[in-house]
Computed example of a mutant assay.
Amino acid sequence: MCGTSTDFRPPLLVAAVIVHDPATSRVVLLQRSENAKFAQGMWDLPVGKSEPGEPITETAVRELYEETGLTVEPDSLKVAHIIHGAWGVESPNGFLTVVFATHEWTGRPENREPRKHSQVRWVDADAVPENFVDTTSSALHRYLTGGPEVSLNGWQ
């Protein structure tokens, strides 16, 4: 790469978690509240931004617990999908979301951030709401159907 840019910021690093119970064919989803910064009223996976110096698996564990009260061990997380977005609401330089899946957790899903989410609950994997954030919806459907493991969003 020639030259340098003083205002270059790397893409935002994000983790999302698919908590999947294969025995009952259910996944944990949350519905964003009307006060959410992004995708008000829409369904989504538990998802959040990485903190500086934080490994992406720790981001996934932390965000899942902060949003749902569920606890997972980093070793139980398997990479299910990668989303590379050209831009985002809080990420003008793009974002990279690592979507993990786990079949092992402790606790019961609860809405631990009621200002951000209107509900957190188990949903049948074959009845995922249509009012769902596009990028994570695609990742979830691809995970459930064994589809491609990488999605590009907003690229020409």
Rank of each mutant, 00 (worst) to 15 (best):
A60F: 02
N131S: 12
S137P: 00
L140R: 06
T57K: 15
D44L: 03
I83W: 00
T68I: 04
L77P: 00
G69M: 07
L144R: 05
P129T: 15
E113H: 03
V47D: 00
R62G: 01
P92C: 13
A60S: 07
K116D: 12
V98G: 00
E90F: 14
Y65T: 05
I56R: 05
T136K: 04
T59V: 11
S118E: 06
W43A: 03
T97P: 02
W43V: 04
L144F: 10
A101G: 02
E51L: 15
A101K: 05
S50H: 00
E130Y: 13
V79E: 13
T57F: 11
W122H: 07
F100A: 03
T102L: 07
T136D: 02
P46L: 13
R62K: 08
H141C: 05
L144S: 02
T57P: 02
D44V: 01
F38T: 11
H141N: 10
R121S: 11
V72W: 01
T68E: 01
D75C: 04
V89T: 12
H103I: 09
E54C: 05
S91D: 04
R112E: 02
E110K: 14
D75G: 09
K37Q: 09
E130N: 15
N131P: 00
T71L: 12
E90S: 10
H81C: 06
A125R: 02
T106D: 10
M42L: 14
T145D: 06
E58K: 14
R62S: 01
E58R: 12
P109T: 07
A101I: 05
E51K: 15
A127N: 10
T145S: 15
F95S: 07
Q40H: 04
L70N: 07
G69A: 08
L96A: 08
P129I: 15
L140N: 05
H103P: 00
E54D: 04
F38K: 11
V133F: 09
P92I: 13
G94T: 04
P114N: 15
Q40M: 13
L96W: 10
H117D: 01
T97D: 03
E63G: 01
G88C: 05
V133M: 06
G146H: 12
L70M: 10
P52T: 12
K78V: 13
G146E: 10
V79S: 10
V72D: 02
E67P: 00
D134T: 13
V128P: 00
T59D: 01
R121Y: 02
H84N: 08
Q119D: 11
P55H: 15
I56Y: 05
E73A: 15
T71Y: 08
H84M: 12
K37R: 14
H141P: 01
R62M: 07
S138F: 08
V120A: 04
